[in-house]
């Protein structure tokens, strides 16, 4: 009996479990209050499969960025430039397809390369020259967005993408929104990288003890570079999905996404000081935010106020603060005890 209690308390101390509880409560509330039957007797709102797919569809881009940021933050780094890189990659893709006349597949492939190159700029400065990632990526945050604006002269919007490409962002495949497959594959791949490979172990060690990593003979520079280049590549994938969902590519794509992605990662229990955190945690963080945003949009009172997005943002911020404060108090308790 006592062991069961201890197990429960141990589980509750795990961030992921708490977050899962939050998610279940959220989901239950929205299912209860957000599902209604309309005049024609059809069930609408949160409880429908369509709505659940919507939640999924709309969380893919920020979700991808959050996945991309998880390894970076595990190394005690940060990448503020992923949102801007998303915008730049969207523009690059538009130009490659529209202006250069490349087939969509080739344009998409080259866009991923462009994303990797963008990540490599960060990697070179952070891993090569050992500059502080906050400032480096603040610089590339401006640089990438600025390049996107310069390439489009601040005005050009690329549209009329072929249906085959839009399928990625607007249709379903094997029952799920197409981009959800990309997201799931990315989640699985990054999850395996972080939790099942020596590189993932090295991310953590770098976050906990950068000097200790060097003394243990780990490839510090290479590990850091992998994290940032990966982040750039995934940002490019997010750019493709974004473009396919919206049906247009322009320079302001993904503005402000980096902060929401970081919020999701931190809410998911990854420590901003590095070392601690998990990919499932990030997925739960993304889900908690996405369900909140979409769920609120199904509650009649909120619909009347037309305030779902804002309330979701407000609650996300509050949730993040709460998670932080609880974490700090829990940590204090651990040190004392």
């Amino acid at each position: 009996m006592r062991r069961a209690g201890e197990f429960l308390r141990g589980a509750l101390r795990r961030h992921e479990v708490l977050l899962l509880l939050v998610l279940v409560v959220e989901w239950g509330l929205f299912y209860h209050y957000g599902t209604t039957v309309n005049r024609r007797g059809v069930v609408v709102g949160f409880g429908t499969l369509d709505r659940q797919f919507d939640v999924l569809r709309h969380s893919c881009e920020i979700g991808l960025l959050a996945l991309a940021l998880t390894p970076v933050i595990l190394t005690a780094g940060i990448d503020l430039s992923v949102g801007s890189l998303l915008g730049l990659c969207a523009v690059v893709f538009g130009q490659l397809w529209h202006d250069a006349g490349l087939p969509v597949g080739a344009a998409a492939g080259l866009t991923l390369v462009a994303g990797a190159l963008g990540g490599a700029v960060n990697a070179g400065l952070v891993a090569g020259l050992r500059l502080p990632p906050l400032i480096v990526t603040l610089g590339t945050y401006s640089l990438f967005r600025g390049l996107a604006e310069a390439l489009t002269r601040g005005a050009v919007t690329y549209t009329d993408f072929p249906a085959g490409f839009l399928f990625l962002g607007q249709e379903r495949w094997l029952g799920l929104p197409t981009q959800a497959w990309v997201f799931l594959v990315a989640a699985a791949a990054i999850g395996v990288l972080v939790h099942r490979t020596v590189t993932g172990r090295a991310f953590r060690v770098l976050g906990f003890a950068p000097e200790g990593a060097r003394y243990a003979g780990l490839a510090v520079g290479r590990t850091l570079a992998i994290a940032y280049v990966l982040a750039g590549t995934v940002a490019a994938a997010a750019a493709l999905i974004y473009t396919a969902r919206i049906g247009q590519a322009k320079a302001d794509a993904g503005t402000g996404y980096e902060l929401y992605a970081i919020t999701a990662v931190v809410l998911g229990g990854t420590s901003i000081f590095g070392g601690r955190g998990s990919v499932p945690g990030t997925l739960l963080g993304v889900a908690a935010i996405a369900v909140l945003k979409n769920g609120l949009a199904t509650i009649p009172a909120v619909i009347r106020l037309n305030a779902a997005e804002e309330m979701a943002g407000l609650l996300t911020g509050a949730l993040l603060l709460l998670a932080l404060a609880l974490g700090a108090l829990g940590q204090a308790g651990k040190v004392e005890g």
């Binding site: 804002e310 309330m311 943002g313 407000l314 911020g317 509050a318 993040l320 932080l324 700090a328």
Partner: peptide, 26 residues
């Protein structure tokens, strides 16, 4: 929050940033 609870300032202010912005929009 930063000085009293010893939380990292970048995360604290990220949270207050989102909260304030969305509160205002709301």
């Amino acid at each position: 929050l930063v000085a009293g609870l010893g939380l990292p300032s970048i995360v604290v202010t990220l949270a207050t940033m989102v909260t304030l912005r969305q509160g205002l929009n709301l």
